[in-house]
Simulated scan of single mutants.
Amino acid sequence: MALIKSVRGFTPKIGNNVYLAENATIIGDVEIGDDCSIWFNAVLRGDVNSIKIGNKVNIQDGAVLHTLYQKSTIEIGDNVSIGHNVCIHGAKIESNALIGIGATILDHAVIGSNSIIAANSLVLTGTIVEPGSVYAGVPAKKVKDIEPGQTKEMIEKISNNYLMYAGWYKES
């Protein structure tokens, strides 16, 4: 069973039909919406400020979500995929986004809806990623706009697949 821990009077709130891997860690002021999956070794540490996660969000293996005390929070919209070993620190991820494997998103950055952050990219503090764009690199810069078909093909497909994968584990 996942480690779910209260701290500073905050107890995580977990929605319906949520899969939590046995070694996922959910601490403090964390709210997880419906149809989400939190995978192996992921850490959602809402000890110093809040983490709010929408519906149909997958947070993949080894991801770390944390904030700055009294200075930043994490907000994640609906239908978002957070790739393996991603670090999100006090940022906002709008709905229908894909954060690639190993990316780092720093405090007060905003990832616009229907956007992709490429694997291993570094989104610096305060960066505003406009909706419908792809950012890549260190530091991350805009490389192109996303065609509407790409959103359906990549972002929605991955999110739907993770909902299916979570179902496999629930059946076991």
Score class of each variant (00 low, 15 high):
130 E>F: 00
94 E>D: 01
125 T>G: 08
20 L>P: 10
42 A>Y: 13
151 T>F: 07
21 A>Q: 06
3 L>K: 15
127 T>K: 15
61 D>K: 00
161 N>P: 03
10 F>M: 11
5 K>R: 14
113 S>L: 04
71 K>Q: 04
6 S>M: 09
154 M>N: 09
13 K>A: 14
70 Q>K: 07
115 S>H: 08
124 L>D: 12
56 K>M: 08
25 T>G: 09
107 D>S: 10
96 N>R: 03
115 S>P: 10
151 T>C: 05
80 V>G: 02
83 G>F: 00
20 L>C: 10
102 G>H: 01
74 I>L: 11
10 F>T: 12
61 D>V: 05
169 Y>N: 02
83 G>I: 09
165 Y>I: 09
4 I>F: 06
17 N>S: 14
34 D>V: 11
44 L>E: 12
64 V>L: 11
15 G>N: 15
156 E>D: 14
115 S>G: 12
112 G>D: 08
83 G>H: 14
86 V>G: 14
34 D>L: 02
58 N>A: 06
22 E>R: 15
26 I>E: 06
81 S>G: 05
67 T>H: 01
40 F>E: 04
14 I>A: 14
165 Y>M: 03
154 M>D: 12
145 D>L: 15
63 A>Y: 02
71 K>P: 07
79 N>D: 12
153 E>F: 07
98 L>N: 06
85 N>Q: 15
157 K>T: 11
88 I>K: 03
148 P>S: 11
18 V>F: 10
108 H>D: 15
161 N>K: 12
95 S>G: 00
134 V>W: 00
2 A>F: 14
10 F>G: 04
150 Q>I: 07
36 C>Q: 04
51 I>G: 11
121 S>W: 08
123 V>A: 07
82 I>E: 00
14 I>N: 05
62 G>R: 13
6 S>E: 12
69 Y>P: 10
146 I>C: 02
69 Y>T: 15
73 T>F: 07
162 Y>S: 05
83 G>V: 08
64 V>R: 07
10 F>H: 14
104 T>C: 09
20 L>R: 03
91 A>I: 02
21 A>I: 06
57 V>F: 01
107 D>V: 02
45 R>H: 06
130 E>K: 06
79 N>F: 13
133 S>Y: 03
85 N>Y: 07
88 I>E: 04
80 V>W: 00
138 V>E: 05
71 K>V: 11
129 V>Q: 03
80 V>C: 06
78 D>L: 02
23 N>F: 15
45 R>P: 10
3 L>W: 06
